[in-house]
């Protein structure tokens, strides 16, 4: 098993640390999956722990100037590492002005992701910061636990409203209730609401964009006929802390966040920023 990659472009370094930062705000540990052409950050929680799932995909060629990897074997040419994204964030903290950043899989006393950051210096001497982040290598028999979650057959797909207001609202609601219901319809309306013994509160957003998807659930521009009554709301009630965490994790400032509602089943958030895609699956919490 071998892996080494080098990022040279400053924008790419920033972008990469922003992605890692976003992930770190959502989870304590995740799986970093390395394949020949992509790097993934994956979370697959057990149902008992909330059942949230994250699937984040980065095409390596957009970030890395040098990228070499050799998986466990020729036929399964992949590497699965369990890593704490928070440690990655910390080791990339000095990297914002770096000349280059190298990421490689090393074996000290235990397997490590070694991050080498070359900082600019006035003199001829090189200033090199090296972080060793302990990782555990995921055995091949566990790989199936981390397959890409199926895109749900959602009832409503809607673009999220501007983040600032939504964040404030959800943060306030968090003080009142543990759960939030998110509803949306195909007329560009979205509602977030909480209900407690003392009060019921709901915030309405209007004039949002309903993206059209074709049969394979891939986004298209062509409008497609909806069998569904456009006024009818689809609702899912989720853990408000997880939702707030997701809203507060946005370090990448994506152009658009799409929320897909599977009525009474789950919320599926889909972020597309340049070439990075992030999917967040939040299952409903039953009453």
């Amino acid at each position: 098993m071998k892996f080494r990659g080098k990022i040279v472009d400053t924008n790419c370094i920033h972008h990469f640390s922003n992605v890692v930062n976003t992930i770190s705000k959502l989870v304590k540990t995740c799986i970093m999956r390395i394949t020949e052409d992509k790097v993934f950050f994956i979370l697959s929680e057990r149902v008992n722990d909330g059942g949230a799932q994250i699937w984040c995909e980065l095409p390596q060629s957009h970030f890395f100037d040098e990228f070499a990897m050799e998986g466990v074997s020729a036929e399964s040419n992949e590497i699965y590492l369990e890593v704490a994204p928070d440690l990655l964030v910390r080791s990339l903290r000095t990297a914002h002005s770096a000349k280059w950043v190298k990421v490689k899989l090393t074996k000290k006393n235990f397997p490590c992701l070694t991050i080498e950051v070359d900082l600019p210096s006035g003199s001829v001497h090189q200033r090199l910061v090296i972080h060793d982040i302990p990782v555990s290598v995921v055995a091949r028999k566990h790989w199936p636990d981390f397959t890409e979650p199926e895109m749900p057959r959602f009832d409503v797909s809607i673009a999220m409203p501007q983040m600032r207001l939504l964040k404030n609202v959800v943060d306030k609601m968090k003080n009142l209730s543990n759960y939030v219901s998110l509803s949306a319809n195909n007329s560009g309306e979205m509602k977030v609401s909480v209900e407690t013994d003392m009060a019921s509160i709901s915030t309405h957003f209007q004039n949002l964009f309903n993206p059209s998807w074709n049969k394979d659930n891939t986004q298209t521009q062509a409008p497609m006929s909806q069998d569904r009554d456009p006024q009818e709301f689809a609702t899912s009630r989720v853990d408000i802390r997880r939702f707030a965490q997701f809203l507060n994790s946005q370090q990448v400032n994506p152009d658009r966040v799409i929320c897909n509602v599977v009525h009474h089943r789950m919320l599926h958030f889909f972020l597309l920023h340049d070439d990075v895609s992030l999917q967040y699956f939040l299952p409903v919490v039953s009453r």
């Binding site: 207001l165 009060a199 209007q206």
Partner: peptide, 12 residues
Amino acid sequence: EEEGVLTDCNIK
């Protein structure tokens, strides 16, 4: 109401 976003609250 703020910037076209409405919130309804019903407090006992």
